[in-house]
Design a binder for these strands. Structure first.
Length: 784
RNA sequence: GGGCCAUUAGCUCAAUUGGCAGAGCAACUGACUCUUAAUCAGUAGGUUACAGGUUCGAUUCCUGUAUGGCCCUCCA
């Protein structure tokens, strides 16, 4: 929190206290409202001169001595209040204690001002909720050319981070969130009218299926099993068709562990519907009916504008054949052409489309395009070609049919062309909105298709579908022929609210949290020793009103732990070298000689003596100057050794970052630090140990994904291991600490990086058990 | 995974070839009984995201990091 917001908030806290002194309850339980604001403005002719009571938030204040104006806004609209000392008497003084953002209730007669503004002359007004923070001030100027907005709350990061402010002050943001709700309502109403039953199927699933995507995984503690967050509802809804239900649907969140962009979000809302005795043509009619019903209900028209471009939903909707369109565009027979030729065509057209350097079309991207295509199956290349050449230019609603069967393992094949699936995707405004099949109900065919997926998975396709024996068994009891449909609700909401990004229609889009936003410092290769941060305490610096948290590094290194410093906020210093305590400088000097020998033993005589001397001089002298703080010659020695060993041993590591300064937290008194390595490590492992002592608990987390290490310890050491055998990872460790707790905290963090391959890739569960049994001390000693 | 851009007061934005970090709104004090981006006078508000480098001197130039945005890739 900055000083600025503090003082603004303090001013408001003062006002709060003054209100209480006057006997005003700033947070009363009840409020009186006779009209919502829109009803007052629309029915002005009837209400003029009559008394009304409205409630809302103060969105503008215009004081004029002993008569003042305020704008009050509720969910329906905005109205002006007129406060006049003649009418209010003593209560007029309370106007001075009002701030932007407060909720108030006001009662009085409706009238029009000289300038024609519909206004309520307050004869009574009540504070309903005092705001302690100033909302962003956005003003709208009425001009001849229309309204001009000033000081718009527009920074995308701030908008997403504080979405409640965004929705508070930006009408467009509010509209997007509400449109999403209206789409849900319209969809439910429409599906109910069609006779569909809304079912809730599991979100936590032992196997994921129904789409090709990477899942999120989680763990059920008591069952001791890994579970997946669903990527689709499909396989469970189809089981209900087996059960004899005929029209089922579900609206729910699906989760796909993939990147975020304008049209993709890892947690998104999907409507899936299955109708027994239907097929994908049935689903076409259903899709069109659903979307038209939603548009008519929400927008009242089928002629829309999306991102400045007109789009019409009026039937008939176009239908294009994927294969035929490509054949025509490319002048080949895609289903029989050599895959290599198709790949070449892809790269050719890719370069054609993205030939401007501004669009990030670098040589590497070209290479990647080539590599991706040259390894891919014909079906995938066909699909990529279609996306590149056709799909991304479709604007008005268009059903795309004739998908390669290979891309649709859960769909039936076309009877007269088994290479193609009974499937469509609906494209609208360059987006894929819906996907539907005639569902595969032949257990043998389904098994074959899933086996092919399993093979692809085994060959490294991370998005291949899993073999679901239970689903196949269910199919063997007989599933009626059926049509199935999936509709992206968020994307539909985008189009209906003219939102440029899917995140606009999601109420609270994900954004990195504060603890991970800790101020960071990069440590150069030569500074790798500094991997341990000590909180020294608060200091007063120049300005007595400002406090800074002081911290300093304790010598550590990657590869070998030289010494671990233990220190409290009071400044007690001692060293534990795993070989005894050191607190005597003379002893430290002796220790240094020992380490010197050790270095020579380690590196042989190749290690240049002048380099050693240089480091020694530099750090000795620096250390002497800085002695009052560092208070230990030995520390210099430790740093020296760190450098010597690090530079030689840690060549594999490109760089490492230490996170260590107090967060400039705007949300609360949190201190965080962590260590983050941006290492290009393909194999290897990192040991870590965190020790805390103190009265209060310390919650402790390792980022990004190592949930097994997310725990709370009161006192003691938690150690573990992170392996980098699967892929290069970033390591972050965060310790959120309340500022008030700093005084009694002792925290140590040790890290050792060992760049050797892991013998096996243990599953998450076995990894956890392994970690429990690790004795980190032995590993440290082994390295020494 | 890659490219480009951005980050300065609570909000929106300035700052000349590298030379004292500024304005409007919001806040505070004062004036004002029909204003509406109210107005007028004054006051206060900054580790220029973070770290390092170059320089007599860095918001400005260089390097790195963080966060965010757009695009490519991926997400069939």
């Amino acid at each position: 929190m900055t000083e600025e917001t503090k003082s603004l908030r303090d001013i408001r806290l003062d006002k709060l206290a003054r209100l209480r002194e006057r006997g005003v309850d700033p947070y009363p339980v009840a409020s009186t409202r006779s009209h919502v604001i829109r009803d007052v403005t629309t029915a002005f002719d009837e209400l003029e001169g009559k008394e009304v009571a409205v409630v809302g938030r103060v969105t503008a204040l215009r004081p004029h001595g002993r008569a003042s104006f305020a704008d009050v806004t509720d969910a329906t609209g905005k109205i002006q209040l007129y406060f006049k000392s003649d009418l209010l008497g003593e209560r007029y003084e309370l106007f001075d204690l009002l701030d932007l953002g407060d909720f108030v209730g006001a009662a009085g007669k409706v009238f029009k001002t000289k300038t024609g503004e519909i206004t309520i002359a307050a004869e009574d007004f009540t504070l309903l909720a005092k705001g302690l923070r100033t909302p962003p001030v956005v003003k709208t100027e009425k001009t001849e050319e229309g309204d001009v907005t000033h000081d718009e709350f527009a920074d995308p990061e701030k908008r997403y981070r504080k979405r409640y402010l965004d929705v508070m002050v930006n009408p467009q943001a509010r509209a997007c969130v509400l449109t999403h709700a209206e789409v849900l309502r319209a969809a439910r109403r429409f599906m109910a009218e069609q006779g569909y039953a809304e079912i809730e199927t599991p979100i936590l699933q032992p196997l994921y299926g129904g789409a090709n995507a990477s899942p999120f995984t989680t763990r059920h503690r008591d069952l001791e099993m890994d579970l997946y967050l669903r990527i689709a509802d499909e396989l469970y809804l189809k089981r209900l068709l087996v059960a004899g239900l005929e029209k089922v649907y579900e609206i729910g969140k699906d989760f796909r562990n993939e990147s975020i962009d304008r049209t993709h979000y890892p947690e998104f809302t999907m409507l899936e519907a299955y109708e027994a005795f239907g097929d994908y043509r049935t689903m076409m009619a259903l899709t069109r009916g659903l979307i038209i019903a939603a548009a008519e209900e929400i927008r009242g028209t089928l002629k829309l504008t999306y991102q400045g471009r007109e789009v019409t939903l009026e039937p008939p909707w176009a239908r294009v054949s994927l294969v035929a369109t490509l054949n025509e565009r490319l002048d080949v027979d895609v289903l029989n052409e050599e895959t290599q030729t198709l790949s070449d065509l892809y790269v050719l057209h890719y370069l054609k489309r993205y030939d401007e350097p501004q669009r990030g079309n670098t040589e590497t991207n070209e290479k990647k395009a080539r590599e991706a295509m040259y390894g891919a199956s014909r079906a995938k290349v066909i699909d990529a070609l279609f996306d590149l050449l056709v799909a991304c230019d479709i604007w008005n609603p268009t059903f795309v049919v004739d998908y390669p069967a290979e891309l649709s393992p859960l769909a039936k094949r076309q009877p007269d062309n088994p290479a193609l699936a009974e499937r469509f995707e609906l494209y609208l405004c360059n987006m894929e909105i819906a996907n539907a099949f005639s569902e595969q109900n032949d257990p043998a065919e389904q098994r074959k298709a899933l086996e092919a997926q399993a093979e692809a998975g085994a060959a490294g396709d991370e998005e291949a579908q899993q073999m679901d024996e239970d689903f196949l068994e269910a199919l063997e009891y007989g599933m009626p022929p059926a049509g199935g449909l999936g509709v992206g609700i968020d994307r539909l909401a985008m189009i209906l609210s003219d939102a440029p990004s899917i995140r606009e229609v999601i109420a609270f889009p994900c954004i990195k949290t504060d603890i991970e936003r800790a101020v960071t410092k990069e440590v150069a290769l030569s500074e790798l020793r500094r991997l341990y941060i000590e909180i020294v305490g608060e200091s007063i610096d120049k300005d007595p009103n400002k406090k800074y948290l002081e911290y300093k590094y304790v010598p550590m290194l990657m590869g070998i732990v030289v010494g671990v410093k233990r220190s409290t906020a009071k400044g007690i210093v001692e060293y534990d070298l795993r070989s005894g305590m050191v607190n005597d400088p003379r002893f430290a000097t002796r220790k240094f000689n020992e380490y010197q020998n050790k270095i020579r033993a380690y590196f042989g005589d190749e290690f240049p003596k002048d380099k050693l001397d240089h480091y020694f001089q530099e750090f000795y002298i620096k250390g002497a100057e800085d002695a009052a703080i560092k208070n230990s010659l030995f520390e210099m020695h430790a740093e020296l050794i760190d450098i010597l060993v690090c530079e030689e041993k840690i060549r594999l590591i490109e760089r490492i970052t230490v996170i260590g300064k107090p967060i400039r937290a705007k949300t609360g008194p949190v201190f965080g630090f962590g260590v983050k390595g941006a290492w290009d490590i393909k194999v290897g492992k990192v040991y870590f140990a965190v020790t805390t002592q103190g009265r209060n608990e310390t919650s402790f987390r390792i980022f990004p994904d190592l949930k097994y290490f997310d725990s709370t310890i009161k006192s003691g050491t938690l150690s573990g291991l992170i392996d980098f055998t699967k892929k290069s990872e970033k390591l972050k460790i965060g310790l959120p600490i309340e500022r008030s707790e700093l005084e009694d905290k002792i925290i140590e963090l040790s890290l050792i990086y060992e760049p050797i391959p892991f013998p096996e890739v243990p599953g998450p569960h076995s990894l956890r058990k392994k970690i429990d049994s690790i004795d980190i001390t032995e590993d440290i000693l082994a390295l020494l």
